[in-house]
């Protein structure tokens, strides 16, 4: 299943990746191979099989509604490249 250049552009846009023309060609090829590999699953007849939503037979894992201290402002911001007034500073969106 060959991926079209438009599809590669679209996926790159959703992932916010700026790809060069060479990369686009290379990824189109690689992504197509991955899709083909996964596509093989469709050869199986799964008509009688219940859809699997979760790999473990576990349900209803819940915790009580109790507020506990989290990290400090300093800790939580310590990995941020830019900080101002106790907040993450990011490029303007819109």
């Amino acid at each position: 299943m060959a991926l079209s250049p438009e599809e590669v552009n679209h996926v790159a846009m959703l992932a916010r990746l700026a790809l060069s023309e060479d990369e686009k060609t290379a990824f189109a090829e690689q992504l197509s191979l991955i899709l083909d590999y996964v596509e093989r699953l469709n050869e199986l007849d799964t008509g009688e099989v219940e859809p699997l939503i979760h790999i473990l037979p576990v349900f209803n894992v819940l915790r009580p509604d109790e507020a506990l201290p989290g990290s400090s402002q300093e800790e939580i911001l310590s990995n941020a490249p830019l900080v101002e007034d106790g907040q993450y500073k990011v490029p303007r969106i819109i």
Partner: peptide, 23 residues
């Protein structure tokens, strides 16, 4: 609720920015 939906951080309104946050 007292705490957030998937972690135990407080939901109180009007706190210092980024003071009710965990990993």
């Amino acid at each position: 609720t007292e705490s957030k939906i998937f972690c135990s951080c407080s939901t109180a309104f009007g706190a210092e920015p980024n003071s009710q946050v965990c990993p």
